[in-house]
């Protein structure tokens, strides 16, 4: 079953010289995929990710997420759609610095108006799943980059999204933290069936992906599927 489906997606940034960031991308991503969108800087991978995530709108084409054409939603509907359907992991972690790890994870569930008991139980379970059971009451400033990004993964999973979009999630991490984070996400993908879509040019991420979509100049130039995870877990 397709979780994400784009049809002839175009995105042009108007200006003195219009820039075609995405140029006719059509792709389908199924539930449970562990997909990396790769390409050089300026290839359009982040733009594509933003459009799939409902953060940006295509100039042309359709984006169907979970059977719904999100390009037709209003801004307010998009905010609500993102809240209930998409988990985000950002390159710079983007945790709320004044909240503890647990509060950061709970926050999105609070926006979803989940009960206190559910929020507490799920935030604890998720933080334990990412190996931060003993750091739940720490604020981000007291955590390493790797730990912060693991909290970000827990936060992305908290609202029970249809898929998680991760934009360069390992760009600021050292190799140990990267391996650790990838293990966690790979396990969640394999065991929980959570769909992950990365935008990355980190070879370590590309090596762990089971599908690699390569963009160049806003066009898909290759789409490779691998049945098995080619790199052993760290």
């Amino acid at each position: 079953m397709n979780v994400i489906e784009t049809t002839n997606l175009h995105k042009t940034y108007e200006g003195a010289v219009p820039v075609k960031a995405v140029n006719g991308v059509s792709l389908q991503i199924e539930a449970g995929e562990f997909t990396a969108i790769v390409g050089p800087s300026g290839s359009g991978k982040t733009t594509l990710l933003n459009i799939i995530g409902g953060l940006d709108r295509p100039t042309e084409g359709e984006v169907i997420v979970g059977g719904q054409d999100i390009s037709k939603l209003s801004n307010n509907q998009l905010i609500d759609f993102r809240l209930h359907n998409i988990g985000f992991v950002f390159q710079a972690y983007n945790l709320i610095p004044v909240l503890t790890a647990r509060e950061n994870v709970e926050f999105v569930m609070l926006l979803q108006k989940r009960s206190r008991a559910e929020r507490e139980a799920r935030s604890q379970a998720l933080l334990e799943a990412v190996g931060l059971g003993d750091r739940m009451d720490n604020r981000p400033t007291k955590m390493s980059g790797g730990q912060q990004q693991r909290v970000a993964v827990a936060r992305a999973l908290a609202p029970k999204p249809k898929f998680v979009l991760a934009d360069e999630p390992t760009a600021n991490l050292d190799s140990h933290s990267t391996a650790n984070l990838l293990d966690i996400m790979a396990n969640l993908n394999r065991q929980e069936g959570i769909t992950f879509v990365f935008s990355t040019h980190d070879q370590r991420v590309i090596d762990r992906a089971r599908r690699v979509i390569t963009l160049e100049d806003g066009v898909v130039v290759s789409d490779i599927r691998r049945e098995e995870n080619p790199v052993p877990e760290a």
């Binding site: 995530g53 307010n76 905010i79 609500d80 993102r82 809240l83 983007n94 709320i96 999105v108 979803q112």
Partner: peptide, 16 residues
Amino acid sequence: THELGMLMSVGMNKFR
């Protein structure tokens, strides 16, 4: 700005 962008991205609406 960065943090507010993140809050909007994860689904915090304008009223909040």
